[in-house]
Design a protein around this nucleic acid. Structure first.
Lengths: 207, 207
DNA sequence: GTTTTTATCTTTACAATGTAAAGATTGATG
DNA sequence: CATCAATCTTTACATTGTAAAGATAAAAAC
């Protein structure tokens, strides 16, 4: 058997893959710099050269998560079913519980990182477009649009967070749910969900 | 100056207070078993005898948080303003960011703990009552009630999580918000919010 | 083609953490 | 008073993040 070469070649990608593997197995708490290096088959301090420190590595991983989530929503938006994006969002969280949790654990991330800031901002564009806004940044929108965006994201993110945290288990134990979160999701999400602009039925009037 | 007595007296309460002090200062990531012991002025392994391990200590602290949150909602429910509980919930998260974050970080908590399980279950009762249900457990409710509960909690929890995580900063930077999350909250929360049962306007019909 | 530089990876080292085990102290119990 | 049990301390060990210095090899310079 040949010893591995001193220079890995593309350790950066290998480390991110190793990290995601551990993330899928043991959740965010299983992500240690040394553990990831071990999984990737390199020395304990090798990743530091590529990512700076642990929060740098996790931030790049979270950035990948935001990119994938945005892509998932973008793709689901082409589905004729009006609530396809909603279910796609939740399914993303279900399919990638560790990654989704990591993405919103700001104490382990560094939002000054270029990669994470860009990916996060790109998610905003997708979100704004989903409520019919042409703006690319929330700062350029009017209050009603902000309300819609906040409403949508809060509802979905809250649901996913509670779900992954196990807080919805008592609800899902109810026979009417049959253990399926999407049943709960269907009775929770307000029905019309206009994709294109127009009057906002579930919105409060301006004070 | 007299040396402190070998037996503290009520170290349990002192440790919890020390923990909350550190939590308020540095967030959940500042909570280490040794650091808490240091803050309480005892040896590093003293808390272990009262709480077992770190997750035990944090679980008891989170349980206190759930009790306080439930009490906050209960008190706000007597306010004539229909949306008082909503604002009270968000204000609780704003006033206790570390505690609120800890309460929903399941990877550091142990829900098999009596204290935490009881406090969490008590929160359910309050939540169910807020939508007019008489049930004390979600398992006893019908699907429509579950939908309402899930809707309310997801929306509020999602908003608070995003807020504390800093994800709403781009929105709050919008001049219309004036940096106040409650402005955003007001345009987000659906208006009628019936406290007592009746037809549910923002709810989807059964499929 | 040889030398120098630079990026990449390893080894070593150190402080901090969680927790297990054993010992010290003290209030309670008989 | 003697014994016990609860409480707290000391000691010890494996693990972590990360800084510093050394080894290796690819790339660049000549």
């Amino acid at each position: 058997m040949s010893t591995p070469p001193y220079h890995h070649g593309n350790l950066r990608a290998a480390v991110l893959e190793a990290a995601e593997r551990l993330l899928d197995q043991g959740g965010p708490s299983a992500l240690s710099l040394r553990g990831i290096a071990r999984e990737a088959g390199v020395s304990a301090t090798a990743p530091a050269h590529h990512f700076g420190d642990l929060s740098g590595l996790l931030s790049d991983l979270a950035a990948i998560g935001f990119q994938r989530l945005a892509e998932t929503i973008r793709r689901a938006a082409t589905d004729p079913a009006p609530r396809a994006p909603v279910h796609a969002y939740v399914r993303f969280a279900q399919d990638n519980p560790g990654l989704y949790t990591l993405m919103f654990r700001s104490d382990r991330l560094d939002y000054r990182r270029e990669s994470l800031a860009a990916a996060s901002q790109a998610s905003w564009a997708v979100l704004l477009r989903s409520v019919g806004s042409e703006a690319r940044m929330p700062a350029e929108s009017d209050l009603a649009t902000l309300g819609q965006v906040t409403f949508r994201w809060s509802l979905l993110h809250g649901f996913c967070t509670l779900l992954l945290d196990g807080q919805l288990r008592p609800l899902l134990a109810n026979p009417a749910c049959n253990g399926d979160p999407h049943v709960l999701l269907d009775v929770m999400v307000p029905p019309p969900a206009p994709v294109r602009p127009g009057p906002v039925p579930t919105q409060a009037p301006s004070p």
